[in-house]
Each structure stands twice: as structure tokens, then as C-alpha cells.
Nucleic acid binder design. Sequence first.
DNA 1: TATGAATGAGTCTTCATTCAT
DNA 2: CATGAATGAAGACTCATTCAT
Lengths: 217, 217, 217, 217
Amino acid sequence: MSEVSLIISREVIALTKKNPSERKEEIRKAAVQVISNLGFHKTTTDKIAEAAGLSVGTIYNYFEDKEEILSYIFEVEREKLKSFFSDLNDSAQSPAKKLRLLLDRHFEMALENKKESKLLIDHRQMPVRKVSVEILDYSILLKSCFQSILEEGIASGGVRDDLDPELISGMIIGAADSVVVKSFFTDESPDEIFKGVSERIIRALLHGILSSKNQQV
Amino acid sequence: MSEVSLIISREVIALTKKNPSERKEEIRKAAVQVISNLGFHKTTTDKIAEAAGLSVGTIYNYFEDKEEILSYIFEVEREKLKSFFSDLNDSAQSPAKKLRLLLDRHFEMALENKKESKLLIDHRQMPVRKVSVEILDYSILLKSCFQSILEEGIASGGVRDDLDPELISGMIIGAADSVVVKSFFTDESPDEIFKGVSERIIRALLHGILSSKNQQV
Amino acid sequence: MSEVSLIISREVIALTKKNPSERKEEIRKAAVQVISNLGFHKTTTDKIAEAAGLSVGTIYNYFEDKEEILSYIFEVEREKLKSFFSDLNDSAQSPAKKLRLLLDRHFEMALENKKESKLLIDHRQMPVRKVSVEILDYSILLKSCFQSILEEGIASGGVRDDLDPELISGMIIGAADSVVVKSFFTDESPDEIFKGVSERIIRALLHGILSSKNQQV
Amino acid sequence: MSEVSLIISREVIALTKKNPSERKEEIRKAAVQVISNLGFHKTTTDKIAEAAGLSVGTIYNYFEDKEEILSYIFEVEREKLKSFFSDLNDSAQSPAKKLRLLLDRHFEMALENKKESKLLIDHRQMPVRKVSVEILDYSILLKSCFQSILEEGIASGGVRDDLDPELISGMIIGAADSVVVKSFFTDESPDEIFKGVSERIIRALLHGILSSKNQQV
DNA sequence: TATGAATGAGTCTTCATTCAT
DNA sequence: CATGAATGAAGACTCATTCAT
């Protein structure tokens, strides 16, 4: 067998046999697809398999059971978020700018990846037994990211210290979610909807909603 | 059939038969109870029947199917909210005060009726096919209530007119939900958690989060 | 409603609606039927349901799961055996006679109820997790019955006291089982096969197999 | 392919390739191991492969299907027994002595090879469709060995001729099995349990269980 | 109307077997 | 021959819904 043919046969292998993590990734994507269309409970293992172009049995070679697929989806999203937030913290930005960038990412993700985004907003209701305690839930993680920035702002004196960072984080995420949810049900192009939203959220948050002339309502 | 037995049977009927709307209400309450304990998907019709002290079959005399029970639950909640909001609008309060009062109601309900409250926050996930378009979703209604007050504030000049009322409503609801959700998972007494929250949310909303000395962050 | 019509309506109920224990008994019989034909592992819940003239779901109204059906079958058999043995002990028979009668019952049951009998002999292999320790296994119970008679014989001096009653019980049951098993695979009528077997087993057991003239082999 | 790589590949082959019967034997041993631990039905082909240090596919190069593995296991055991019995018959022992030696072998095997032993006792329950009629079942073979010795005893006059050798064989095997089964579930060391059992079984069998003084029970 | 036993379509999950490499 | 990922038929179990009483 010549060296060339050896290489060829390697290529052939590469084309047909996937390495395990690729397969797992395919299944994850298919699951995200189906779950965000149908919701977790109407999503059957058969449908995930079909969407992934596999047979049911194969799914069980990569995941213990149906719930583990969901756990894995969130695990991946958490890792992405952690990584982004770590980079964000390494950059020398003002807290306000950081809030903006974190929100921007939120909307960019929603744009690029409607499915994941829908799923992430919806997930609170899913009865996932197996997600162990030590693994932070995605929404808790997201909130803690915003909290962390706010606390930094308080520490540096820019942000009022009589605020509850957790509460304010809830406000930010709530505002963002309401926009994303709106984008699910509107015909308007998401681009249009998301344009300038981070900006507006942050501005309202920083300066309040009162008109400058009259500070009484 | 003897007279005696007739009387007896009347008494029996008197004891068991209720007027239809009472029965429906009993079933609704039982369903709220069970659903908020177990989540919609682990809630079986048998369990609802048991909680209502009825048999399964009876439920189907008052509701077409399981989903209709859920629709009805939200219908009732929407009616309550509409009624409250109507009264609120009739009162001569400032917009800021109205926002406070609407938030207060939110938390009072959460306190009094943890079950309904949990359910209302959770409902987005429920696969209710039959909720027809014309029936406004509870959360949409709630948002529109806040929006309406904000628009009033803008009209009267107290609130800045460069804000998106929908966005700000989302912020308020997001903040509120995050507190309520927190109360589900914490050992702290809900009274303690909810004390002064409306106040704090409104204050942050009105004046922003920047420290007064330094308006740059 | 007259008394007569009351009674009639009760009878009507009696004819159509079975009381729970009757249904359970029907399922038990169907299960015995199917299991002894196919073995426990090839017996599907569907087949049991079909044999019982019911649908799968109904079975699960009476049994927790498939294994519980098996547990129940043995529970019933153990109860029957206990009851028989209790009566046997109340009678004033010699130990030898008791052994005979217990064996006779064994074969009578095998005759009348081939299915149950096959199942009882086969059951050791079935992976029944749920049979709790305190519930004596049928075969252990049967052995303990024989043991008990033998110990009585030893106590009264008729039986040698240098024997291990457990071992001898094993001998008796082994002999009996081998005959019953043979009856499963032979064309000979079971009546013919079982005729006089108890007698022969007991005789061999009591006096041994050596020819009387020569006590050396 | 260069010469070097050829040599390497030959060495690899030399390390992994075994002659077919060795491989088959490895698989057989692994299967015995796994089956007697888990029972036939919880034994998967994957587990057998793992225990054999092979991959599933390989097993199917040596066996048609899963059941054939089981057939083969018993085939091997039957051959071993036949060989032993042939040697036993060639020796000039009294029938009583032969019974003793055959029983001794039974218990020695149980001692040495708990796994096989358990499997042999349990096998009646296994749903082996493919074991063809011409292949004698192990337990039938064992019984026929005992029968043959007993018939020799009858022929030579030492054993009473009014006995059914098949029945007596059943007694012996039943007694033996009950001891072996006991050893599976007891903490007592098997050595202790098996010590002198053959002796005791044969003695009881030869002379019966009646106390010598009193031949009535 | 109330009852609740019966129904059976629908799910998740397992595992013997195949086959491309 | 060895490999082991992929297959998909089969089975246990659930539960919304019906209907005879």
C-alpha cells in the first residue's frame, strides 16, 4: 500500500466515520432544533434522531437518556458564556461598557441562533432532574455575570451603593428577554428589533426614566 | 321508589351536587395546587381529580380536555388583573404611584397565593395549543398594564419621551419575577424578601443606578 | 326506587363490573398460562393482557409492574401450600404418612394445574428483584415443610438422628421434580406417570435402595 | 507499504490473532463468567465481549448468535462429563463407589468452578430455542449417568430391582443441587458445606432414613 | 351528573445483530 | 479477522380520554 493510498483511506474514514464529539455535537444541534420548535415535552427521542439523521439507538450511544441531552445543551451554553465573560473581565472596560457588551452578546446570540436562544429563555420550566447542584444553571450564571459587573461598579464608586445588584440584574435580563420573546412572535425582522436595544436598556438603567426637567412623577 | 328514599336521595344530591360554576372553581383550584407542585407535565388528570375530591370522569363534564383547565386558570387570572387595573385607573394616582401599586399587587399575590404565582411565572413553557389568539396571554396583559401607565406618564410629561415603554415594562416585570423566583428557592421568609421590593424597583427605575456625585461610569 | 329494583341494579353491577380481586385473579391466571408456555422472559405484558382479554393498561391498574405479577403468583402458591401444610399438621398422621400426603399433593397439583406446576419448578431462575426477604420463597417453603416433617420423625424416634433433614428434603423434592419435569416432555399420560410415585419415593427413602439380602454394594 | 511496516503488521497480527479454537474458548469462559454473575437475560453481548477483551463483532465470527454461545457452553460441559463417566466406567469400582465418585466430581466442580456450576443448575430456565434435540441436555446426561450406575447395581444384585432408577437418580441430583444452591446463598465456606456430603447422600440412599431399631414410622 | 375501570396510542429505552473500514 | 458505531425492532410502562352504570 503506497503512502498515497494510506492517506486516501484516512480521508475516506474521515468522511464516513465521525469522531464521537462530532456526533455528539450533531445530536446536540438536532435536539436544540427540535426542542425549540416543539418544547421539551413534545420532543420525542425519535424526532431528535430523525432531525440528526440517525436512528434512535445511536443517540443512546452518546447520551444516557433524554434528559442528559438537555443537560448537555445547557452545559455547552454555560461554557460559552463563561468563556465570554472571562474574556470580558480581562478587558479594561468600564462597568457600563461591560454591561453593554454582555447585552450585545445576548442579542447577537439571539440573532444568530434563534433556537438556542428560545431554549435558554424557556428552560426554567423543564423538569431536569439530573442537572447536579454544582453545575450552575444557565440563568443563574447569566444573572451572576451582570451582578458581578454591577458590584464592580459599586466598588469603583460609579454605581449607587444602595442598590440590590441581584434586583438590577433581574431588571436587565427581564428587559432583554422581553425583547427576545417579542422577536419570536413578531414579523418585524429581528435585526430591526435588536438594533440599539442594548443602548436603550443601559441608558434607561443608568439615568432612570424620569424626564430631566421634572424629577417628580 | 318510596317517598322516604326520594327524600334521602334528594339529601344526598344536596350534599354532593354543587352548582356548575362552584364545581369548576373547585377543579380550577385543585389544578392550580397540583400543577404548581408538580409542574404541568407531571400533573395527571387523576391527581387533579384526587385533589378536587372528585373522580376523573367528572372533570370532563366541566372541561373539554386537560389543556382547557390550564386555559381557564389563566382566563381567571387575567380577569382578576383586568378588574384590578380598571380600579387602579379609576383612582387619581400619579403614574409612579400606580406602578408601585401594581407591583405591590404582584408581590401580595405571590405572598398569598404562592401556587398561582409560580404558575403564572412558569406558564410560558406549557404546551397549550388551544389558547386562542383572541384570548390575551396573562404576561402580555401584565406588560400592557405597565406600558399603559408608562405611556400615561410620558403623556403627562413626567416620564422621558425617548423611552420604549414596552422595554421598560419588561424591566419591571423581569425584576419582579427574579424576586419571586428567588422566593421559591430560598429559605428566607417571603415576607422578608418582598418587603420594600416594589419601592426599590421603582426607585432604581425612576432615578437610575448611577451614583449622584458621578454621572459617568 | 323499590327494594326490588335496588337489588336488581346491584345484580347488574355484579354481572358487568368485576370486583378488583376477581380481575386480579383473572390476570394472575392469564399470566400463569402465558409464562409457563413461553417462560418469564418471553412473556410480554401485551401477551398477558391478550390472554386475560384485557388491554395492557388495565394490568397496570392491578399490578405495579411485570415483576409484581410474578411475585403475586408465588404469593398465592405459598399461601395455598401454607394452608395445606397447616391442615396436614393438625391431622394425627405418622410422619411417613405426612410425607406421602405432601408428595401426593405435589403431584395432584401438577396434574390439575400443569401450568402452575411448571412455573413453580422453573421459578428459581427468574430475576425477581422485588420479592422481599421476609416473604419466603416457594421452594424454600416447600423444603421447610418436608424438613419439618422429618424433624418430627427424628424427634419421635422413627427417623435416624444422624441425618441432615435439609439434605433429605432436597432428595425428596429432587425426585418429585424429576418426575414432574419428565411429564412435561413425555407423551405418556401424566396420570400414568404419577401413579404410585409418592409411594415409591417414600419407600426408597425409608428403606434405602439396597437389596435386603445383601447390605453391601 | 514498506517492508518495515509489513513486518510490524505481522508482529501485530502475531500478538492479536489466536487460533480459532482458542478464541472460541476465551469467549466461552467470558460468557460463563458473565452469565453466572448476571443471569442469562441480563447478560448482553457487549458484556461478554468486554469480559473476553474483544469487540462484539468478533464474537459473531465464532458464534452464529447469542444462544449458540449458551449451546456451546453446555456442549463443552457435556463432553467433560461424558469423558469423566467413560473413565469411571472403565475403572473397576462397585456401583456404590461409582455413585460416590460421580457425586464427588459434582461437588468438586462446584468448588473449583462456582460459575459453571451455577450455570449448569440454572440452565433449565434459559430460553434456548436452537439447542437441537439430538444434543443431549446436560441434566439429562447427568441423570442418565446415575441411572446407568444404578442399573449396573441392579443387574449385579446389590440394588433392589423394584426401584425406578430414573426416580432414584432424580433423588440424588436433587439432593446434590439443594446443597450446591445452598452454598450460593450462605456465608459458610463451600468447602465446609461440601465436606462429607457425597458420603451422607449415598449413606441415606443406601440404607434409608429409618432408625434401625424401629422400622416403622 | 358522578363514577372509575378500561382503553390503547404514544414514549423511552435496550440490545442483538450488521457491516463498512 | 477485528472493530465498534449504527441500526431499529421490540418491550415496559404512562396517562388522557371514554363510557357503561
